[in-house]
Design a binder for these strands. Sequence first.
DNA 1: TTGAAAGCGATACCAG
DNA 2: CTGGTATCGCTTTCAA
Lengths: 330, 330
Amino acid sequence: MRDVAALARVSLKTVSRVVNREPGVSDDLLDRVEEAIRLLGYRHDATASSLRRTDRRTATIGLLLDDVANPFSSAIHRAIEDVARQRQTLVFAGSSDSDAGREAEFVRALAARRVDGLIVMPVGPDHAALLHERQLGLPMVFIDRLATSSAVDSVVADNRGGLRAAVRHLAEAGHQRIGFLGDLRTIWTAEERYLGYVEGLATYGLQLDPMLVRRDVRGVEAAERATHALLGCAHPPTALITGQNLLTIGAIRALRAAGPHFQVAMIGFDDFPLADLLSPPVTVVAQDPVAMGQTAALRLFARLDGDESPGKQLVVPTHLIVRDSAGAAR
Amino acid sequence: MRDVAALARVSLKTVSRVVNREPGVSDDLLDRVEEAIRLLGYRHDATASSLRRTDRRTATIGLLLDDVANPFSSAIHRAIEDVARQRQTLVFAGSSDSDAGREAEFVRALAARRVDGLIVMPVGPDHAALLHERQLGLPMVFIDRLATSSAVDSVVADNRGGLRAAVRHLAEAGHQRIGFLGDLRTIWTAEERYLGYVEGLATYGLQLDPMLVRRDVRGVEAAERATHALLGCAHPPTALITGQNLLTIGAIRALRAAGPHFQVAMIGFDDFPLADLLSPPVTVVAQDPVAMGQTAALRLFARLDGDESPGKQLVVPTHLIVRDSAGAAR
DNA sequence: TTGAAAGCGATACCAG
DNA sequence: CTGGTATCGCTTTCAA
């Protein structure tokens, strides 16, 4: 910038005005500066700029997901990117793999780079480390998992409602023995979905049989094993609800291995591509990751624009997509 | 940092030494400084640090993909993140949507934030804007699409080899009329796969019938329409090769609509989850996005570590996964 | 081992 | 409309 100023024979401040498109620069100087910028291949340094600027904005946000390669997470990521771009904001994305240590490390790294805000899918129920950063002044929105503190907003899916709808659908088809596969119970959504399952059973007059429930199941292969175990027990379920997208896939594999067409009805939580082309097509409780991402990003930017109201808890509806895997009890 | 120095009654430089774990600070002062850091909730400012530091590193890289939500892209993203984390480096991720304007905008934004390097899936054959940034000093690795310049490295899949293998597999099963669906021909991989198809036909003594080829097909729905058109023509193909993951899905939908079990054999380029559970299971040419991402990241970091050799072109193998959708001609 | 002073690239404030 | 000067938070250089 010094070089530009020297070449254009103006002051530093004038170059700064041109670069920031501030009004009140004569056409003559404006041309000279722009010419000098082109000649020297000058590139504005946004980091130095934000250091000196009063608002200290870096036009940068952090996004911490469970795994950027999971389709649910990457759909959220994309939705957030689209909102951020309209604000000329770049997104640092990272994966926690449900590991509190990685979460803490990532948040530290983001804070050190002075991101303007953070959207995070918290790893566990203990938000102390995250809230510590929040108190130090980092605006924060939780996505997919509820905040207990009113210092942060959260955007979550209607997990319980979705599970109740799934139970209802199966109960109305005559199922009495409905199994459930759930992710790590430290994950908020896994707990909520389980509670929705329990509520659903109660609502539709069904017994909760602990033998039909497998929790803390993580990943495709564990789900496959858990489903096999469920099918092999003394009184196997006639229907199965899976509480996460990878668990759904594992259960489908196990049911498929047990017979060419499912002998057991099933409903998955979270829709996935090609669910309608499997045999049978898989009934699911669909979430809306795009709406969740958009909502979270808008909330964060509202905070950056000065919204100081207490933390909101925003719930995005889920809805049952009836395909064919959850037919009548046999 | 000033406050920390004041509270610990030491100089700024001493605090800097403690924060950067430089040797040669007495235990006494070290304790005092660490205590002050804790008391004040001091957070190191990595942006100010890199501004002053001689190497000017920000420990930040940019990653520009076609769409962060595409499973192929997000697998690459994850692999790059894992390599970057070992170097304490954060990743800015973004989607170009195959739009040259968005690509240029994103690269500008990254350059302004002084990323240490860039991994990019170039939108089209014209790399002028990207190479301009490269010349200005931004280390750059192309992923998935070949660089024509020796100033950048590229990591690509063996697209032609994969396509030839697919044609061979179909030819050996007796197919004579093999159709092809390709993405925008401005995309390097789309062109390469088409050329591999043409080469394959020539190698196995088959005629290239332009009526069986549809190019510039973009997205699931367009692929569905193109497949319907292909099936409806005077001499329809007995087998179909799709040149991209979304096109594969569109073709599957169209074939499924035409009959419960594929009347037409097919092979998709790029593997996808559940391909083995469809009816019939889908034979594909699998890429290895994780290896591609790792390789690209390692290449970039090698450059950052001072490797000044001419740009390398690294090819990651593809391999045919034979399932059941590409059986004998009927 | 420790610190004082200069300066990274930019913006803010105020004077002309 | 334009420019000089202080300063953002930190590292570097060099002297003590």
